[in-house]
Computed example of a mutant assay.
Amino acid sequence: MGQTIIVERREREVMKKYMILSVLLCLGFTGSLFAQSILPDTLLFVFKLHGQTRKYEMSFQEKQDSIYLHWGIERNLKWQSGSYAMGPESVEQATRLSFLQPEDGKHVQLSPEETVYILSRSAYKQLKEQQTLVYNQTTYSVLDSNERALGYPLIHVKDAAEGCEMWILDNPKLALVWRTCNNPLGVNWEVTVQPSN
């Protein structure tokens, strides 16, 4: 009788462990469904501004029709980080890029008219259908698609008025501005893929 009780307790403990493990696995799977990484890697954005170079690690995640950009940089032997949030309206219909400088600890919700480092889906659609793009009240025309990144062509566009050029990842889920040059604001960047550890 005593051994039967001990065996039953052990079986209950084992079942309890399996149930807890199952719940944790389900929660982990559900979490990954709600916050999916849109691009496979952490990307390194190399910024050039007035002769200075800054390197930011960035990753994009999609959660409930919003896109979150998480960034980080090591400065003065200290890790700084923050994020930008682009709501569903931004993701679908924004008409301008935000050039708001990252600040340590800041989590910025962008206005519905803005995206950061990506084009809205409507702007991307316009670019694909008309071979031109209007963003930040500037018209860009397609020059070529000769380069590739992350397995996608890069759409090379140029503003005829001021000469600003952008290379945009030809990806309908995330039309990332991969590189810029001749930006009238003076800030240009190029993306590279971080090597996996």
Rank of each mutant, 00 (worst) to 15 (best):
L49Q: 10
L49M: 11
H50F: 07
H50A: 11
H50G: 07
G51P: 01
G51W: 00
Q52W: 07
Q52R: 12
Q52G: 06
Q52E: 13
T53V: 06
T53L: 01
T53G: 00
R54T: 04
R54K: 10
R54N: 07
R54Y: 07
K55C: 01
K55S: 00
K55E: 04
K55I: 03
K55W: 00
K55H: 01
K55D: 01
Y56K: 06
Y56N: 02
E57A: 08
E57D: 10
E57M: 04
E57R: 07
E57V: 02
M58S: 02
M58T: 03
S59G: 02
S59D: 04
S59R: 07
S59E: 05
F60S: 02
F60T: 01
Q61F: 10
Q61L: 10
Q61V: 11
Q61A: 05
K63F: 15
K63I: 14
K63C: 15
K63N: 15
K63M: 15
K63P: 10
Q64V: 11
Q64F: 12
Q64M: 11
Q64G: 03
Q64N: 09
D65E: 14
D65Y: 08
D65W: 06
D65G: 10
D65P: 05
S66R: 05
S66H: 02
S66A: 11
S66W: 04
S66F: 01
I67L: 08
I67R: 09
I67W: 08
Y68A: 11
Y68T: 14
Y68W: 13
Y68F: 15
L69E: 07
L69W: 06
L69I: 12
L69G: 04
L69Q: 07
L69H: 05
H70A: 14
H70L: 15
H70V: 13
W71N: 03
W71M: 08
W71F: 10
G72P: 08
G72D: 13
G72R: 15
I73R: 02
I73C: 02
E74I: 10
E74P: 00
R75C: 12
R75T: 14
R75Y: 13
R75F: 13
N76C: 03
N76W: 05
N76A: 09
N76P: 02
N76G: 07
N76M: 06
N76L: 06
L77P: 00
K78D: 05
K78E: 08
Q80P: 14
Q80D: 14
Q80A: 14
Q80F: 13
S81H: 11
S81L: 11
S81M: 11
G82N: 13
